[in-house]
């Protein structure tokens, strides 16, 4: 069996045996969409020029970004689990290169994120009546894939560099707070103070969520979105290069 398939099979077996993983990877983002999306849609007046639908429609892209971010963090955390179990170092003696190890993990990560995106978009379209752009689903799939890979590589750097589980958890908590809230995930940036807006524009979550919003609702300027997409790809490549270096130094 090819080492990449062996890694994917291993990751799948581990995830499938743990209900907690399934909840956090697949159901938690759906719960967010249902609870926050629906509740806020019914309690606040929300209008974005040129956008069809209510807050749930706007928040759909945010939920996809959040899922991508969370799944990547869970997969990177599995480096800790593997290290605690001792299997991490044993795996480094298995017949595979460090790059195959990293790529195998990210491929499984992308598969879970795509599965989660199918669930979220289906729920949004059929149950919450979000007018999802079916013609842009390939762009959506590409954004899920590149986005999840980029976040996984970033988290992998920290998971490989930090030796203590509690320190890694502290980092992910800060990341969650800063990356998710200082972005276009929950609200449009235009009405916000300039300083906040510029910080959010420099945040890769904003780049990814903006492309998601374009892919699901057709919202945004294509020229700016292209720039954001290119910037995210560069971010993902740099994170991949550094994560690989960290793994090679293990």
């Amino acid at each position: 069996m090819d080492p990449l398939i062996a890694i994917i099979a291993r990751e799948a077996k581990i995830r499938a045996t743990n209900v907690t993983f399934i909840f956090w990877d697949l159901l938690y983002p759906l719960a967010n969409l249902l609870i926050f999306g629906m509740a806020l849609s019914r309690t606040i007046e929300f209008r974005v020029p040129g956008m069809p639908g209510d807050y749930t429609a706007f928040f759909l892209a945010g939920v996809l970004g959040m899922a991508s971010f969370s799944i990547a963090s869970n997969t990177a955390w599995s480096f800790f689990l593997d290290r605690d179990n001792g299997i991490f170092y044993e795996m480094l003696t298995y017949p595979m290169s460090r790059m195959q190890y990293l790529v195998g993990k990210v491929l499984f990560n992308v598969f879970v994120a795509l599965l989660q995106a199918v669930l979220t978009v289906s729920l949004a379209a059929w149950l919450l009546e979000v007018p999802v752009r079916v013609d842009r689903l390939p762009l959506l799939a590409a954004t899920v894939s590149v986005g999840t890979a980029g976040w996984f590589f970033l988290y992998a750097i920290f998971a490989l560099r930090i030796r203590r589980n509690d320190a890694f958890n502290a980092v992910t908590s800060v990341f969650y707070f800063v990356f998710l809230w200082v972005s276009s995930m929950f609200y449009p940036l235009e009405p916000l103070p300039a300083a906040f807006r510029y910080l959010a524009y420099a945040n890769p979550v904003t780049w990814q969520v903006d492309v998601f919003r374009y892919a699901t609702l057709g919202l945004g300027q294509p020229s700016r979105l292209l720039m954001e997409a290119v910037a995210f790809c560069v971010f993902a490549l740099v994170a991949f290069w550094y994560a690989l270096r960290c793994l090679q130094q293990e």
Partner: peptide, 12 residues
């Protein structure tokens, strides 16, 4: 290789 530390896939 059997490394010195305990190493197993605990969830499997």
């Amino acid at each position: 290789v059997v490394i010195q530390a305990s190493a197993a896939e605990l969830l499997l």
